[in-house]
Design a protein around this nucleic acid. Sequence first.
DNA 1: AGACGTACCTGACCGC
DNA 2: TGCGGTCAGGTACGTC
Length: 277
Amino acid sequence: MPELPEVETTMRGLAPVLTGRVITGVTVRAKRLRRDIPTTLTARLVGKRVIALARRAKYILWHLEGGTTVIIHLGMSGGFRVANNGEAPGPHDHVIFDIARDRLIYHDPRRFGVMAVADTKDLDLHPLLKDLGPEPLTPDFTGRVLRARLGNRRGPLKTSLLDQHVVAGVGNIYASEALFYARLSPDLPAGSLTLAMANRLASSLQNVLSAAIAAGGSSLRDYRQVDGNVGFFQNAFAVYNQGGKPCPGCRCGGKSAIQKIVQAGRSTYFCPVRQTT
DNA sequence: AGACGTACCTGACCGC
DNA sequence: TGCGGTCAGGTACGTC
């Protein structure tokens, strides 16, 4: 499910529920998600006040007083909701956080998410975070930076965009969308970009990710914002999930059809006329 | 180093 | 209605 925009939207939805509040209870109902949920989770969180929330790549970070940080990844199907009064936990409701009068529920049918705890001061060294690439939505994310991260890779450009060590937070939807706007073929050898091409791609990534955040993310199947609302960026997809439809691009005048191909086992959508280089 | 396949899970959907 | 196959927004690990 969630790529950078959905994680960012989730984090922003959690902020008003958590920031400045004390965690009064943590109930772990599943032993593991993608990895074991730390047995110390409850002990390290209960009684602590949440100072601030942040996002790094597709991870949501809860910074707690006393130097503890909670690290959460939503995997493919994870999400939070604020429970209704007296609501009983349902299937796939794996972790329950009581925060003052609110109850936050982490729900994850496929259990590909991650929940971890770390000392805030060692966060940059944490195995989940230490090798991540640059955040695309910062001013210093430029074509030059992107090209350097792509190095001499020979594999397809689109597959490299999914590698979190190259650039953080991009997933399967926004990789296809950004390549479309940058007019770059997903099959280009990743390390072959000129600076001009890398500049286009860096800008396209920033534009499409920003637009998706503004739209509340993309809701394809089960993604919901914390308040239960769906995002609506799926209505603005240029190519993702649009196989066979006319290309909305300027270069081909909409006369070409969007193609779906498979790269490294993942679907890629593109316009073979517009995305020529 | 990096490219690729596979594994981890459940649910939705499609064709028979 | 039911069954099997396929696919899904992600990542880690082993292998070559």
